[in-house]
Computed example of a mutant assay.
Amino acid sequence: MAAIFNSPSKYIQGPDELAKLGSYVEPLGAKALVIVTPSGKKRVGAKIEGGFVEAKAELLFEDFNGECSKGEVDRLVALARDNGCDIIVGVGGGKILDTAKAVAYYLESPVIICPTIASTDAPCSALSVLYTDDGQFDKYLFLKANPNIVLMDTMVIAASPVRLTVSGMGDALATYFEAQATHDADGGTCAGGKGGMAGLALAKLCYETLMADGVKAKVALEKGALTPAVEHIIEANTLLSGIGFESSGLAAAHAIHNGLTMLPECHGMYHGEKVAFGTIVQLVLE
C-alpha cells in the first residue's frame, strides 16, 4: 500500500480574510452558493457581501437546515442547479462545512470552506460526515478531492464562544495519538493509503502546539484578544489536525465518538469534547 498525503489546494489564515472572499471566488466560478445559518449571516453576511462589490462573481445566500444529512445535501444540490451556481461556499461550523463539501462533490464543482469557529478538524479534509436527520452518525462520505480553498478569518473565529475553540483543541488532541497508533499498526488512512513521514510530523506538531499554546490561547480568548497563541491554536485545530488525521489515520478516539452520538445524553456535547473523551479511552486501551 502506497503512502498518500492529502491537503487543501490553498489554506489562508488571517484577520478579516472573509472580506476578500469575492476575490477568492472569482477565479473559480461565476456564481457562488453561500451556505450559512441565519445567525452566521447576521455575524458575517455584511462582510462577505462587501467583498463581492468589486468582484465579477455573484453570490446567493441559503440557510442551512441544521443537520449534515442526505436530505439536506440533496436539497442544496437541487437549489444550486436551479439557480446556476457553479461554486459552493460553506460558512460556519463543521456540519455546514461538511454539507458544502458534499454538495460540491455531487455537483462536481469547486468548494471554498470558511469556518467561523475552530472547533473541529473537518475543514481541510476530503471527507464529509453524514448524520441522520435526528443527529445520529450515518456514514463517512469520501470525496474525490480536498477543498480548493480553506479560508480562516481569525477575527471572526476569535469572537466565537471560547468553548468551541477549546472543543477544537479536544478534537486536535486526538490527532497525534491516533496517527501514532495507525502507524504502529501499519494501518490505512482516510486518504486511501498508508501514512507517511510528513503527515505524522504534522500530527506531532499539532500535539506540541496544543501543549505550548493551548492554555495561553484560552486565556487570551477569554479576554477577547487575538494573540499569536490564538493564531497558532487556530492553525493547529484546523490545518495541522486536518492534514494529520486524514493523512496519518484515525483510531479508537473517533470510533468511540461515533458511538457516543447514538446516546441522547451526549447530544449536548460538542464533537471535540466527545473525541477528547475517546482519546482518554484509547490511551487506557493501549
Rank of each mutant, 00 (worst) to 15 (best):
S9T: 10
P38Q: 12
L97P: 06
S69A: 12
A191F: 08
L164Q: 05
T154W: 00
V111F: 01
D121E: 03
P110S: 01
L127I: 03
P161V: 13
E178C: 03
D134V: 13
Y207L: 15
G268N: 04
L202Q: 01
A229P: 06
S167F: 01
I113M: 08
L28Q: 07
L143D: 10
C124T: 07
G242C: 05
L205P: 02
A30N: 14
L263G: 09
K274V: 01
L97K: 13
M169F: 06
I157Q: 00
L285Y: 13
L127P: 00
Y176H: 10
K218G: 00
E54L: 10
S248W: 01
N65M: 07
G14T: 10
N148Y: 05
P161E: 15
A46H: 03
G40P: 05
G199P: 03
E67Q: 14
G244D: 05
D213P: 02
L28A: 05
E208P: 08
V150C: 10
G40R: 07
L173T: 03
T189G: 02
Q180Y: 13
V73A: 14
R81G: 12
L127C: 02
S69R: 10
L239S: 00
D138V: 15
G170I: 11
T99G: 05
A220G: 04
S247P: 14
P38M: 11
H271M: 03
L205Q: 14
A80E: 04
A251F: 02
